[in-house]
Amino acid sequence: MRSINDIPIHVLSPDETLTGQAEAVLSEIADLLGRLLETGEAGSIDLRSLPLSPADRDWLNAKLGRGEVEIVLEAGGRSVLTETAYAGVWKVQHCDTEERVVSEFIEVAYIPAIVRPAGADIENAYEKLQSDLKQIS
């Protein structure tokens, strides 16, 4: 045995069957999207809290597909926010500084909440820009 990879363990994913959970997630997304249209209220689903099998995840990913927008956020590790083929439905994946996934959500919103800068931050930015300009001039 030359390396650890030679140990003959081949874990098969128990994925022959869909649990039916993925379908439920999809219909919840549809509900949230409807609510977004009606009231403008955003919603999200914590994917980690659901016992989705690998097959469920693949199925869900295939169904949601890919949209036009991908946002990368560098904040204490990388976060990737991808629009799905359904406008307003986002896949949000947060990683830590070591690139481990720490949380995963489906967010149903015009723009994922975390993308929008906070008022205080804009205030700070404005002040900082003003002072920077002063220094230049």
């Binding site: 956020l73 904040a75 204490g76 976060s79 947060h94 720490v102 949380s103 906070a118």
Partner: peptide
């Protein structure tokens, strides 16, 4: 950043 903190809280 505030976003970092928000991210922690989400996790």
């Amino acid at each position: 950043s505030r976003r970092t903190f928000l991210k922690y809280c989400a996790s």
